[in-house]
């Protein structure tokens, strides 16, 4: 299989169109199974009661929010190195989903924190670095929104994402440091109690569902972006008439 063949926007547009239903239905199916496991199969936690069930949403969203940033950084590096137009479009298509997951992780974290810690928000290292990650997403999308020239926007956004990718581990490290300096280790998130297997299964199913959802949504968005960029070409006109 020649990968460069699919790097052409015209080919990828049709390929993505064929794949979207598979990913979308897969995501819906797995989310259904995952939610069933989380609410009906998984036992009540003896320490945290029913409130722990939020982790089935919380953990996959937090994972995805970080993972999507890495994928964006990967596509940006590829785009800058090989000058492939599609790579930048992938990064653009992924960013809103990443920001959404980031927000959901913070939101569900707050919902979980209220019954567990007695506060909606604590300046814990993980929460704080997640918040800063959300700021990074917002900054990148604001930069894209402000630049009208698509080529300049692609490259400027890519540079910012890569700078952020280098900085993210440093931010996480410094926030952890700051956290231990400013407050005692009254809350310890890292020491997770051993989890029942069925809980882990539920979480992993939800994580895969989040993956498939991300791919499906990113493909829908990237198709839109491709059409927008290629609107002057014949194939794009033909594809628009079909649709």
């Amino acid at each position: 299989m020649n990968l460069y063949h699919y790097a052409a926007p015209a080919t990828f547009y049709h390929l993505a169109g064929r794949w979207i239903p598979w990913f979308a239905w897969g995501a819906a199916l797995l989310a259904g199974i995952g939610l069933y496991i989380s609410f009906f199969v998984a036992p009540t936690d003896f320490q945290q009661g029913e409130a722990y069930r939020i982790i089935f949403i919380h953990v996959p969203t937090a994972w995805m929010s970080m993972f999507i940033y890495l994928v964006m950084a990967f596509w940006c590096a590829i785009g800058l190195a090989f000058n492939t137009r599609l790579s930048f479009l992938m990064a653009r298509a992924l960013a809103p989903t990443g920001a959404l997951f980031c927000f959901l992780a913070l939101w569900t974290g707050a919902l979980w924190g209220k019954p567990m810690w007695g506060a909606w928000w604590v300046w814990d290292a993980r929460l704080t670095s997640q918040l800063i990650l959300l700021f990074l997403y917002v900054g990148i999308m604001a930069l894209w929104a402000a630049i009208d020239d698509p080529k300049r926007g692609d490259r400027a956004g890519a540079l910012l994402i890569l700078v952020g990718a280098v900085n993210v581990p440093i931010i996480y490290f410094s926030v952890t440091w700051w956290n231990t300096l400013h407050q005692g280790s009254s809350i310890n998130l890292t020491k997770a109690p051993s989890m029942a297997t069925i809980m882990l299964v539920g979480m992993l199913v939800m994580a895969v569902a989040a993956w498939l959802y991300t791919i499906a949504v990113a493909f829908v968005r990237v198709r839109g972006l491709i059409l927008e960029r290629e609107r002057h070409t014949d194939w794009a006109q033909a594809a628009l008439k079909e649709a």
Binding site: I132, F135, L136, V138, G139, I140, A142, L143, L160, V163, G164, N167, I170, I171, F173, S174, V175
Partner: peptide, 10 residues
């Protein structure tokens, strides 16, 4: 400000 402030955190 939006772009750079988060990077200043460390």
């Amino acid at each position: 400000t939006l772009l750079i402030l988060p990077l200043y955190v460390p």
